[in-house]
């Protein structure tokens, strides 16, 4: 029997941004997610945090599965992202836009990731309903991600979770497309 193709998508970002929830919504099956009581300084912010990996599989068709890896939300686990990112289509970077602590951590993580890879990355700005939520400009400035594709979202909403994956995939396709074809197509795109 022929083996299925596997596409990889990484979901990363600081703690309590919604990574586990996003993977749950876009997976056909979720295999690993070990939430334990946070014991370090993060416990003030989130009672449970993911240890190890979140992992979900989305069955696309008979020949293709997507593996979704959620990396732990602490920068000391950055090394896992480096290993996991090999051959990935791209990365979804979630960040709690209302938490200074998450933004500080996110800045370190984002800098690390951008230094290691040019693959597409989409930033999902979460917790938009909180009073302290930064506007997108300020958040991009603080993260050092001014030119990134940043989308406000609530991963608890399935449509928002899907939106982030769709945005990443569009970026992947745009990266892979032949620019010449785009130019040809432009010529036939006139307002009549």
């Amino acid at each position: 029997m022929a083996q299925k193709d596997i596409a990889k998508i990484l979901v990363t970002g600081p703690f309590a941004a919604g990574k586990t929830t996003l993977i749950r919504f876009v997976s056909s099956e979720q295999l690993l997610s070990k939430d334990v009581k946070a014991t370090d300084a993060l416990s003030r912010f989130k009672a449970m945090t993911t240890v190890g990996l979140d992992f979900g599989i989305l069955h696309v068709d008979d020949d293709l599965d997507v593996h979704l890896f959620g990396t732990p939300g602490q920068s000391r686990f950055n090394f896992m992202w480096k290993v996991l990112s090999r051959g990935a289509l791209g990365t979804i970077f979630l960040i709690d836009s209302s938490s200074q602590r998450a933004i500080d951590e996110g800045k370190k993580m984002y800098k690390y990731y951008r230094g290691k890879s040019d693959d597409p990355i989409v930033i999902g700005a979460t917790h938009r309903d909180k009073e302290d939520a930064r506007d997108l400009d300020a958040l991009a400035d603080e993260l050092g991600a001014q030119d990134a594709n940043m989308i406000p979202c609530d991963p608890r909403n399935k449509e928002d979770s899907k939106m982030l994956v769709l945005a990443l995939l569009e970026d992947v396709m745009r990266d892979e497309a032949d620019d010449e074809l785009e130019e040809e197509a432009l010529d036939d795109f006139e307002l009549m």
């Binding site: 596409a7 876009v26 696309v60 293709l64 289509l89 769709l166 396709m173 497309a177």
Partner: peptide
């Protein structure tokens, strides 16, 4: 503009995968 020729075989494979996942999601 996004669904025609790609930059090469590897690109074509990534494009095909991304396109199928898009449709699925």
């Amino acid at each position: 503009s996004l669904k025609g020729k790609t930059k090469g075989a590897a690109s074509s494979r990534r494009m095909s995968m991304a396109s199928r996942i898009l449709d699925k999601i």
